[in-house]
Design a protein around this nucleic acid. Sequence first.
DNA 1: AGTGTCCGAGAGAGCGCTCTCTCGCGCTCG
DNA 2: CGAGCGCGAGAGAGCGCTCTCTCGGACACT
Lengths: 373, 373
Amino acid sequence: MWACGLETHKYPALDEGGITGRVQIPRSGRPTLEAVASVAGVSRATVSRVINEVPTVDPEIVETVRRAIEETGYVPNLAARSLVTRRTGSVALVVSEPPEQRSPLPFLERLFTDPYVGRVTAGAQTVLRPRDIHLAIIPADPPAHDQVVRYVRQGHVDGVLLITSSSADPLPARLAALAVPLVLSTRTTLPGVAWVDLDQAAGGRLAAEHLIGSGRTRLAVVGGPPDAPFGHARLEGFLDGVRAAGLTEPEVVTADFTRPGGEAAVRTLLAARPDVDGVFAANDLMADGVSTALRTAGRDVPRDVAVVGFDDSSVAAQAHPPLTTVRQPVEDMAEAMARLLLAALRQAQEPDDGAAAGGSETFVPELVVRASA
Amino acid sequence: MWACGLETHKYPALDEGGITGRVQIPRSGRPTLEAVASVAGVSRATVSRVINEVPTVDPEIVETVRRAIEETGYVPNLAARSLVTRRTGSVALVVSEPPEQRSPLPFLERLFTDPYVGRVTAGAQTVLRPRDIHLAIIPADPPAHDQVVRYVRQGHVDGVLLITSSSADPLPARLAALAVPLVLSTRTTLPGVAWVDLDQAAGGRLAAEHLIGSGRTRLAVVGGPPDAPFGHARLEGFLDGVRAAGLTEPEVVTADFTRPGGEAAVRTLLAARPDVDGVFAANDLMADGVSTALRTAGRDVPRDVAVVGFDDSSVAAQAHPPLTTVRQPVEDMAEAMARLLLAALRQAQEPDDGAAAGGSETFVPELVVRASA
DNA sequence: AGTGTCCGAGAGAGCGCTCTCTCGCGCTCG
DNA sequence: CGAGCGCGAGAGAGCGCTCTCTCGGACACT
């Protein structure tokens, strides 16, 4: 099975030919550096230099080698390269689902229904693509956590962008323990892990101020699952705003960040407080569901009840009526995550100065006023 | 930088210690096979056998080696392994966007708004996960096509599941040219490429028959972009059904498979044929948009206008009213794709018998009756 | 003219693993 | 009781690349 015969396995007959020499076909059927070198009439090392754009190569030789690469259709073998460089040139965007999430929708459908992940991908790509770093999206529901950890441990990727929505999610800590460059989409106290977050409380406050400012007094909140740290912060910010205005405590209902979840929440809400005139939902998908359910229940939005969402994702503009919402600059945040990851990657490669890891960023939300409030 | 000193670089001092022997730390800081072998007091080859579960190893030795692996925290180095095996143990799910798609929504948001991709992922995972094959999702909008091709050429993955919606998409042919195992989500004539498809025309016919069977006579279609081959087939099947019933030709409007696209189509439609009483939309997202827009225009669904969708994705059940739709067994189809890919992978590994590639499957749609028609 | 210096290309080890080949052992059979 | 056999473990080459070290040649300097 091996390329070399028994008798000559130590020194396989080297092709001495110059520029026009042909070289033995490797086992893979694909040309190797050796083949290109032989065609170009130079050494393997020189071809390697040309490929890696080492500047100290004679321009004429560069040209010859380039032609040889073209002629042979040579493509570097990733495995061989990363065996020595210890880098793969790709990173993973892991979207983790916390355990015990009790949404009726399967994780993967939820993942591919919420525009959030798409926006993160888009933002990350603007940073990674110009640097020619590949991005692989890895969904990680709890049964897949082990497999994902193995994926990263095996060295498929150089670093990980991790999106999680729960502080109870064990995956961040597990990945952090691998000592692989890692950036989280939420504030974290894990040592050596960078993160990017939104000032969630400020966002909640913006929503409260807007509702109150437009004369609403009987408020309610449709929050996310209690273990979602950012959902909690949004809620607290909102409550702060309400308290600051001296209004009575709003009714709080929780849902699962999905459209049907928002609809269901409205039923609970109307039963508890039929006179509600302003609702803050912790994301746009739920806000859309809330809005739909309110209309179904005979309430006009925004005349009878004002609705404010969170995210300013594409569903906000598409909703009926278009949603007033708290804008989260997801793309910018994802860009920041990617940049932090690149920094961590560089650090890992050449640990010049000690543990300068970290360097995290917090973004500021802003209100986008549309028709729903 | 290299692990071995200058003076002993040819034969680095081997640790002769038995079970308790410690071994030099490799450059990566992570334990290697060598280290495990030394701890277990066996040869590298034996450890390799244990890891790869070669059955001819003494159970007692297996146990010793297992313990040594545990103790050292050893994880195989993917690069080294795949350099020799020429396999990586992972496959890509490439979701391609055809060029010149004129949807207003950015590709990535569209991708992560339509539940379709999530269902495909779920289906593929049921086959791949038990076999411990990693799945990386790679979105490929036209500017990223080159990068994706490079990703595959470099050997990041062993095979590709490719989702595309346009016959004008150049990516399938480019990937097929790499001679990497490839399975398409649509019927294709590319040689050596397996595919899985739905009998789209039959689905269209089902929709027509249902509408006609419930007494609708003034029909219309909201089709997908003209270059989407499956959209076209759905349309043709529908038209066939209508013609078979001897009804007048339906009004045909095209949209972009999104919710807002469906809404916009209704405006065109009502202007051209205000008396329409049955609409077939080529996917559920558009059907939901159609339904919403019809209600906004004062038409009751299904009393005034019946609406039939296509896919039976999660939005169908969530819509108001819940959508009658043509069920596409996406998960099953994705499973089939994954299985075909595995077969192709096996083939590529050991090309026993000639070009036995291919072996494709067509699935049959069925009608799911809910409230909208 | 002789020697030192610098620049750029070649030589070759080594990354961590797999896999073939070889060999030693204990067993069965003649 | 010795040759033959089979089974399981070790030895070691090699996968395709990078990168250090070495060396030859062109040039400048004394």
